[in-house]
Nucleic acid binder design. Sequence first.
DNA 1: GTGAAAGCGCTAACAT
DNA 2: ATGTTAGCGCTTTCAC
Lengths: 339, 339
Amino acid sequence: MKKITIKDIARELNISTSTVSRALRDSYEIGAETKKRVLELAQQLDYTPDPVALSLLNSHSNDIGVIVPDIANPFFATVIAGIEDVAFAQGYHVVIYQSHDSYEREVLNVKHIFNRRKDGLLVSVAANTHDYSHFKDLHDAGFPLVFFDRICEEIDTHKVSVDDFEGAYNAAEHLIQQGCRSIAHISGPQNLLISRRRLHGYRAALMDYKIPINEDLILASDFDAEHSLLLTRRLLQGNIKIDGICASANSIAIGCHAAIVEAGLSMPQDIALIGFSDLPLAGLFNPPLSTVSQPAFEMGRSAAKLLINLIKKPEDNKMLISNVLKTSLIVRKSSLRNG
Amino acid sequence: MKKITIKDIARELNISTSTVSRALRDSYEIGAETKKRVLELAQQLDYTPDPVALSLLNSHSNDIGVIVPDIANPFFATVIAGIEDVAFAQGYHVVIYQSHDSYEREVLNVKHIFNRRKDGLLVSVAANTHDYSHFKDLHDAGFPLVFFDRICEEIDTHKVSVDDFEGAYNAAEHLIQQGCRSIAHISGPQNLLISRRRLHGYRAALMDYKIPINEDLILASDFDAEHSLLLTRRLLQGNIKIDGICASANSIAIGCHAAIVEAGLSMPQDIALIGFSDLPLAGLFNPPLSTVSQPAFEMGRSAAKLLINLIKKPEDNKMLISNVLKTSLIVRKSSLRNG
DNA sequence: GTGAAAGCGCTAACAT
DNA sequence: ATGTTAGCGCTTTCAC
């Protein structure tokens, strides 16, 4: 595992490094004989060009960066699998960054990505990010950038998301159809577009079914089961009787689930619950958790395709694409009153 | 977000690049006045040294690589969080690689890490890896290397693991104490040391309690809930009645859990189940799943500390450390017959 | 058809 | 105290 360079090959063959370089790149101006000798020796020595040297030279790395809030979230882990699926096939390596929902970490990550000459960036923004100038700067510098899931509207680039409005609408409608009339919505951080869109979907469904909206039943939680547990606990102890909860994320749904069980209420008879963004293990819960499922793998694939196209043919991307994927309702026992 | 180089600073100040370089590194041989002007301008221009150029020069990158089978596995996601915790504090960036339990991917990952001049590697080996020469080559080349969880015995370097034998022993003992007498062990791939050690722990517990070991109750599953589901289903349909299952991993336990529920058997009355490696959501299962919990975060921290020490002071590492962490039994309803 | 030289951004001998 | 030069590994003019 010693580092072999073109110098080693040149010395061995008594030719110059430029000849070696050209032979390796199969240049037309190199004699067939020389070419053959170089290629054979390179093969034999297991030569691979030094990516760092190439990077310094060309300002690219064949790496694409991905920033997600947290890889432990199964949704993001699956999106990343989708990204890797297409990136790997195209010869790119995916470098994963976690923001842990911190603005400061996100800014550091962006700098790292820029400085290390990553070829492009896929990002789902941190919950604590209110200022998008780090992304704006990148984008203005011509750096290929694609948002997914937690997208940033203010920056004109490709985006991949799901129809959050429709997903949340369907979830609320489903609870209504199960007979719920006092439905709470535990939302995510309101600065995130996905949270606001999901909330709008909930409101729209209630309005369409002529159910009065009670603002006291609309809460904003962090994407954190502990916080959601606290909020739900307080909600259940309050004096408004509720019979259904729409949770705006899986982490939030987990907190709700725990709070309902803890309160000794039965699901779905006393309170029906539905989450957003499927969990691979939700089916094993007690009771199994209904959710609005998102095509996470496909989202990753789509975002990666858009980014790679942006990297390879920037000129083909005058028209910005906003790919909105469909969600699907997965009804399990936590919300199914008559199954 | 334009790239600022020392050249820009040098030109602006009418001095040479080496002076700038020295001033930036606070060299004693630079005049206080010059130093001040350089520092100020650098600050103002938001100069940061180009890491790629530095990398080419020094053969290091301030990145450490981590190879795990799969980031979607909560255990590995938590280990990575622990690694990042110490690496970040020491100024290292953690680059995550997934082997997806494929030997070929692992080899590619190792090459990438070596070629990109990562400063060191933390690895938990792929289930399909039988040949360790890619690690051996790295290690022989003096590349800092630390194994965690799925360690490789044959290579003489630092290792961090848990006491798999004891954990599995305690799990089996617990089932015995709950009255189980016909206990199956669904193991992981047998080429992995952790699988074999856990199996040994199981055997030892049964022997200590004078329970005859039935080899037909010992199965090897992939780390995959689907596979485990299939095996458990077949086991339950067989003609040997069992009343307890020790699963050798959380993915395996999930398959067992599903199979038992599917068969309409009650947990823990008909069959008591205990897994290995805690899942954050195991407490919400129906019934909640008992497990042998591993200190994943601490494992990551320990491995990262060992690696960084190896990177910074190779000479201090004549004595190899094998850090074996303790597991703890988390008893939940899936195995608690009289609570 | 092949070699010499410059340069990507930076640092460290080697001058002065 | 500061400038000049070489070199990390590679590609690409520019020569011949």
